[in-house]
Amino acid sequence: MFEARLLKSSILKKVLEAIKDLLTQATFDCDDNGIQLQAMDNSHVALVSLLLRADGFDKYRCDRNVTMGMNLGSMTKILKCAGDKDTVTMKAQDNADTVTFVFESPNQEKVSDYEMKLMNLDLEHLGIPETEYSCTIRMPSAEFARMCRDLSQFGESIVISCTKEGVKFSTSGDIGSANIKLAQTASIDKEDEAVIIEMDEPVTLTFACQYLNYFTKATSLSPQVQLSMSADVPLVVEYRIPDIGHIRYYLAPKIEE
């Protein structure tokens, strides 16, 4: 028996919003520790890694490991039926071929349940090694979203260059070029609004705008985003979801032929 209850359905709605442009289907792996999802986009350029810890749920029970293959379009349809303030409970029997979502309004006057068929997905999982990154950049997630949106008007790629002076995001295309430089916040009064740069080695890497824009769909999950970079390895874009876990996106760089 698997049962996981969240007081706010909005977290699950936002998680789905954050992955549905990249993935059409995905496997939710549930065990004692919580719910995990790892999946690559169709072109195998980006990867989503989601963790929702058991202790972040209002109620969590998982007697046996459960693997639930879900069509994310169908899941989106179902979650649209939940009010933001509704609680949501996901339930599945051991070895079941369906999952049930139960939505309860705050006063419990309205209770609805939606049963969805599960899919047998044979998706490839990648082993991601523990990596010490040369640069990590923390910044307000809304600022990152704004930059990606602004720069993608000019070019298809964004060059991210991190040095001891700060971090620079650049692009160029038919109409011209654009650069945005961010320096580390001088005095940190509010951590959520700070730009914090840790750099061991300077790194410059180039990434596809389109994917960075997909990642920013997670903006509402966290006030801050962290970018981790090392030379010639995928970028990690991490949004920590308060009290419950994180969503990490990995993006393969573009390189000179």
């Binding site: 690559m40 072109s43 195998h44 350029v45 980006a46 990867l47 490839e124 999982h125 990648l126 082993g127 991601i128 090694p129 790629s157 180039t206 596809a208 390895v233 995928p234 990995y250 393969a252 760089p253 573009k254 390189i255 000179e256 032929e257």
Partner: peptide, 14 residues
Amino acid sequence: SLTQTKLKSFFTPK
């Protein structure tokens, strides 16, 4: 010109 790499050139299948 730049080429988009794939994740599999960095991470190994499990």
